[in-house]
Design a binder for these strands. Structure first.
Lengths: 335, 335
DNA sequence: GCGACGCAGGTTACCGGTAACTTCGATAAG
DNA sequence: CTTATCGAAGTTACCGGTAACCTGCGTCGC
């Protein structure tokens, strides 16, 4: 009599019932074509009859492969990431990979902690938001020797796979749209100010500077972005710089909040104040007027990550690469 | 020389370096007080020096406990669930549990599939959205004999732990607010129409019926809810029932979309048409006017789930329970 | 002074799978 | 007819931890 045992149905139970050894049952599940049809059917019958559920911990321990991938995103509540996630998940799940989601709260230290956690789960790959990481995180990744994806932004020195878009160029392009409308006193409104928000702001600055215009009308906060914050910050900006002609908001939440505040103040958009956001979330096409924004191909980011990762996971060579998915400036009613 | 071996640092490597056996190192990590201080420090030093990362698969396999919990939510992109998730995560992670998130896409079949998947990960508990499940899902849960949480809505026959709110009563209460304003021709606008949306609608129906009013002004669709859809459906409703005085929208996205459409049609809210949503998402307090809504205590749901689950995970008795977290009708500008 | 006790740490077996190599019989090739 | 080849299934060992029981030794009470 065994000292321990969970009481769960195991491969051995299936094997006993069918009259084979457990490795055969294991094969029937993983490489069905290697087992004779008759036997396979009897094994399937036994599995259904006994209600066998494989133990992934045992499988991962024995094979050294967990068939799971860690996806770290900055925030679960930001709609920007859910489409990326969907693309990744659809691409990888059909190939038998489980996607484990963790959120860093925009903190590199938390990212480091999560990398540690997921490495202890033996994930087969890591997908990280951004291209900046703590030194310890880099050391962990280095030692683990697994495929890594850095996403959202682009870098000249990718660790491995880099899929993203040029946030700086996108910020500049959106600003140029204001300039093309003949606007000159264009402000920037930003929250959270993570690295990507900084890059967008730098793009705004660069475009204005190149046009010989002032970059003083800028208000940012480290607080998390929200609709309410967009409204409050817009009010502050108008008070401080009453001559503003347009405001480029670092993301769509802020832009929508700013629009609502304009409506409250009976300020015509875009006649009296033009607005634009960033990301192209659903809400930007629904508001009245619709919000100009930079559409980022988030679903495509997810798809491309999944595709490149699968190649690598199936034995492709490790060669650092960088894929620019681009962006599109949407000129809409608010500008 | 071993036949296989991942090359990773293991407990044995730490043990060798310190000059003890691996079970001692294992104890130093899990029950530090059972190991002498001097030894513990030397072990910690060795772990840092070698960069040891525990293998959770091995641990879970040996102990039969994975220290993880599966949280199934209908949709990752719905902000309603992110706060619940946050409460659960904070409560459980401090106790050493990892929360694995899966999304069902509002499908009971997908829920069943996910339950199977997570059972193969040996999760220590399941958290499910809703109180309806497929027969096979129930059988799986039954056999697995683990703590289960059903959330969001309430049931008279909980499987185990049930934390939620009375969606029917909440729908009725919001409708009553319209009635209290003297409104009589009150419509309902719903999308997705999952079980909770149905319950809210039933609450709307019940309140109108009790007041002797018509429930004909109702438009629903199985499509996923969105801002755009809210606007389109509002337009349809106005065309079909031009006499509408107010519309109760099954969720905040629809309500916001409806509000934007009203703005586009230059329809004064609430003077010409009153609106209300459901859930109390951030956006409802930011729009102009702010949207009336039913605030659901999502963070508290998460907190309570974590608290009750921890009790159970730490050996508490299994007795089915039902916790009503309540709701609050927010009377705001749009009504 | 001796047995009970407590504590740090060790021994042994086991969790439930999978890799790698082997066996065995049937078929193909020479 | 013999040998190489191939497919199906088996043998053996191992993945990296942890549970349960055991040992050795210092302390304490009587």
């Amino acid at each position: 009599m065994p000292r321990r045992s969970s009481g769960r149905v195991t491969l051995q139970d299936i094997a006993d019932r069918v009259g084979v050894t457990k490795i055969t049952v294991s094969r029937a599940l993983r490489e069905p074509q290697r087992v004779s049809t008759d036997l396979r059917l009897r094994i399937e019958e036994a599995i259904a009859a006994l209600g066998y559920i494989p133990n992934r911990h045992a499988g991962a321990l024995a094979s050294g492969r967990s068939h799971s991938v860690a996806l770290l995103i900055p925030s679960l509540s930001n709609a920007v990431f859910s489409e990326i996630q969907r693309g990744i998940e659809e691409g990888l799940s059909t190939a038998g990979y489980q996607v484990l989601i963790g959120h860093t709260g925009y903190s590199l230290l938390e990212e480091e902690r999560l990398i540690d956690t997921y490495l202890s789960y033996g994930v087969d790959a890591l997908i990280l938001p951004g291209t900046r990481h703590t030194a310890h995180a880099l050391a962990l990744i280095e030692r683990a020797r697994l495929p890594v994806v850095e996403t959202l932004e682009l870098t000249d020195t990718p660790l491995d796979i880099n899929v993203g878009l040029d946030q700086h160029a996108a910020g500049a392009a959106m600003t140029q749209a204001f300039l093309d409308r003949g606007q000159r006193r264009i402000g920037f409104l930003g929250a959270r100010m993570d690295h990507r928000a900084q890059l967008r702001m730098a793009g705004w600055e660069a475009a204005l500077t190149q046009a010989g215009l002032s970059t003083e009308r800028c208000l940012t906060t480290p607080h998390p972005s929200s609709y309410r914050l967009g409204g409050e910050m817009l009010a502050s900006m108008l008070e401080r710089w009453p001559d503003l002609e347009g405001i480029f908001c670092g993301n769509d939440d802020l832009a929508a909040g700013a629009l609502f505040e304009c409506q409250r103040q009976r300020l015509a958009v875009p006649a009296q104040l033009a607005l634009a956001g960033f990301n192209g979330l659903d809400i930007t096409e629904a508001t009245a007027p619709a919000l100009a924004t930079v559409m980022t191909p988030r679903r495509r980011i997810g798809d491309r990550i999944a595709a490149r990762l699968l190649t690598r996971l199936q034995g492709g060579p490790r060669e650092p690469c960088r894929e620019d998915v681009g962006f599109e400036v949407l000129h809409r009613g608010s500008l």
